[in-house]
Design a protein around this nucleic acid. Structure first.
Lengths: 232, 232
DNA sequence: TCATTTGCTGTTGTACACAAATATTCAACA
DNA sequence: TGTTGAATATTTGTGTACAACAGCAAATGA
């Protein structure tokens, strides 16, 4: 009778885990979109009020974010959004590069028609963002593309690991790029080109090529950042 | 003046995070040594009493274990140690195989004299266990060897990922091996041989060889398990 | 005899009060 | 004027009572 009690009724009757996941994704998103800059203090009571709950579930979510390395709690001080230098970033980037290549080798999932259509929409959206998009809109776009491409591997632990590493680096990349006065418009264009290359490879069903393009994108993106940082 | 207030005083004046880590490692160890078999219900109140605290910190630890995939909480039911079939295990194993090879490629840390001495002790201990060791003692030994070899890479995110994946598979391997009636004594001997091979490679300073031996060990270990499972 | 209901019991989830810890402020004093 | 120290405010950590939920068994009725 009430088999679908979890999915209907809008947002009121969600399961416990779903509620937690929702808050987790929301806060993680804010950190990555730089709504919360590194060093920002996240107040448990403020978040609790905003999400209409008590501190307890919020603390559950913040604990998870702490395990993921995005925040750090200090007794008597607060919960601060973490920061990292280029050296730490490099470690994560180099691991991401290798793991990305594994997506095609380990458990590749051939894209179906629905996926291809979804990706076409993304490419079209990217073309719009190039002209008038803000860094924030671009980052949001980057997140969406990343999560779409993640569906191309059926290896769950690999997906979870890649997702974790992605969010560890993305937010810091944007800030570091701004600090290094990297030409963001140029970065957007490069990303769009790579997206179109991926689109072609997808249509050809060549997942290895997709992975290689992604790999090159991640690697070169960090290299440009590194050069800009040391140059400036 | 009180700079060392975190390390001294035995075990009473530990930091919050240290206390949590201690309980986390203890419970994780119990799961891996099969003190808690898959399906076991972990009672929050019982654990709280055992560790001399309230449910709150225990829940913090169990939440982390749930994020790591070792337990799963159900409202109104309990917190159960998770289980997995061979198919899921295979995904984790194949990822571990690839990541292990990365330890030598990404940020290899040459072993110092202290490390080599420590490893010699491990090899000696392994020789003893072969004769009279229980499956439990062997698993404990395997954990210690794994954590020692983890020090050979300086890439922190890689270490964390490998550790997470290791504990996801190890406990299930032991149970599956027992179910498949795998010859554990033979497995012990094989492991000891590989350990001695690693010892040689370490002395030669050839970290790539160390990684390759480990890689082969993980891969073949799972293959034997798979064959025994399908055969029986 | 079987199906359904109802209450009981035990579990995790949530809310809140309090403890512990730290940063800040401001006054006293050399 | 600079420095020290205590009071205070704010934050996270902990303990605990209660709510929400699931499972089970006994009671109930046809």
């Amino acid at each position: 009778m009430t088999d679908l009690s979890q999915e209907n009724t809008g947002d009121a009757a969600l399961s416990v885990r779903d509620r937690h996941d929702l808050m987790h994704h929301e806060i993680r998103q804010r950190i990555c979109l730089l709504d919360y800059l590194p060093g920002t203090r996240l107040s448990e009571v403020t978040l609790a009020e905003e999400f209409g709950t008590s501190r307890t579930p919020i603390r559950r979510v913040l604990a998870r974010l702490e395990d993921e390395g995005l925040v750090q709690s200090h007794h008597g001080v607060g919960t601060l959004v973490t920061d990292a230098d280029i050296a730490e970033l490099e470690q994560v980037y180099r691991l991401r590069v290798e793991l990305t290549e594994l997506t095609a080798r380990l458990d590749p999932v051939p894209p179906d028609a629905k996926f291809l259509a979804q990706f076409d929409l993304l490419v079209a959206r990217g073309a719009e963002i190039i002209g008038k998009g803000s860094p924030r809109a671009f980052t949001q776009f980057d997140i969406d593309v990343f999560q779409a491409l993640l569906q191309l591997t059926g290896n769950l632990p690999l997906r979870q690991t890649l997702e974790r590493l992605y969010f560890q680096t993305k937010r810091l990349w944007l800030r570091a790029a701004q600090e290094a006065q990297l030409d963001l418009q140029e970065e957007f264009r490069i990303f769009q080109h790579e997206l179109e290359a991926i689109q072609l490879a997808l249509r050809a069903g060549d997942l290895e090529a997709v992975a290689h393009i992604q790999r090159a994108h991640i690697s070169m993106s960090f290299r440009r950042l590194q050069q800009a940082a040391t140059g400036a």
